[in-house]
Design a protein around this nucleic acid. Structure first.
Lengths: 209, 209
DNA sequence: CTCGTTAATAAGCACGCGCTCACATTATCT
DNA sequence: AGATAATGTGAGCGCGTGCTTATTAACGAG
């Protein structure tokens, strides 16, 4: 009672008709949030870049913040999928760490636009939405931590503080989205390979082939 | 000719009279930029937090962007000092890497407010100012790279790609400012020690004492 | 004491902001 | 075909934005 009806609840998924329009809005918002930041982007900019009137945007998203929320939600869902797939492919902690680190890093380089928004623009979310995204991130940290703990228990890993080390490994991948530039000297795959190597050195402490 | 006189040139350092006032403005801007982002902060917010009228701010800084520039400039100068001091304290690449990584990380945790602004709000700078800050950052990367290259040449380090590894090591420290929270479970020194250890494992590949 | 400089203010200007409204058009369903 | 809901628009509202202006007070040097 007395609750605002606006901007609450799950990401919307109404009929098919406006699907394409919504995708264009998301793309436009993504691009602008990434380069000019959430607060630096106007709703007019977004609508114009998506090729429609400003009011049309409000047909699909009730607030500008909802665009950011949708982007953040979808992005975190996607990363979670990437990471869980990578974990599933590995049959030992060492393999899992290698797979996760590679995919996580490659994703952050390849999708650096999206990654920048979902990592650095969370301050634009409402407290409720921010908290919802935070649980995604806690799950991610727990997944990484679990791999390290398993590796330690099986005897291969030497990791004195799995909690902080998990944070550090994720840090490496996340921060790629900050410094990565298209047309730089490395491809996302180059970086993924190097970072996988770094992760294994951190966990195993021995030079890897 | 035709150049805008405003917002150009080095950080200002006029007479002593307003020194304290300027410091208050910088502190207020720092706090607000850090939590609400550059574009999310109003000049009225800054002035009020600094305990003066909005117009008084313009006596000391010609634009809001100049506040950000001053913060960024001073911050990068400070980090550069921290890093160069650490390098000077080490008498071998291994010692230098250890010292730099510790101090760099501790600084980013301890000064996470400043660090967040100077790492994540650079998009608010004018292109000229942004470029000026970029040279600070290139120098920093070069310093780290030089340590790694020296360590490889002296035979102790196993680092296949010093450029990317230098970036990764700096990444680790920088990203601490993103996730660090006061009253968290670790002190800045805890994180510094752990990260020094990570750096040595990355460079040397062997478990360190 | 005078004069130029620095510091501070209250008021306000032009404009851009997020968002709404009344209304038109279009697609879908019965 | 006609009803219904979804999709789109132009105009505009109230307000907050960065910044300026006119003015006054305090200060330091000659």
């Amino acid at each position: 009672m007395g609750q605002k009806t606006k901007s609450a609840g799950r990401p919307r998924r109404s009929n098919v008709r406006g699907e394409n329009t919504r995708a264009r809005l998301i793309d436009a918002a993504l691009e602008s949030f990434s380069t000019r930041s959430f607060h630096g982007t106007g709703t007019r900019d977004i609508a114009e870049a998506a090729g429609m009137s400003q009011a049309a945007m409000y047909v699909h998203y009730p607030t500008k913040e909802d665009l950011l929320y949708q982007i953040s939600y979808d992005g975190h869902l996607e990363i979670e999928g990437v990471v869980l797939d990578a974990v599933a492919r590995g049959s030992s902690p060492k393999e899992q760490l290698a797979e996760v680190m590679y995919d996580f890093t490659v994703w952050h380089a390849r999708s650096h636009t999206r990654a920048r928004v979902i990592n650095y623009e969370l301050g634009g979310l409402t407290p409720e939405h921010r908290e919802e995204i935070a649980t995604f991130r806690r799950r991610l940290e727990a997944t990484m931590r679990r791999i390290l703990v398993a590796g330690v228990e099986e005897g291969g890993f030497l990791v004195p503080d799995p909690s902080m080390t998990a944070l550090a490994l994720l840090s490496l991948g996340i921060d790629v989205s900050r410094w990565y530039r298209d047309n730089g000297r490395w491809t996302p795959e180059d970086i993924g390979e190097r970072y996988r190597y770094l992760a294994l050195r951190i966990a195993l402490g021995l030079p890897q082939k």
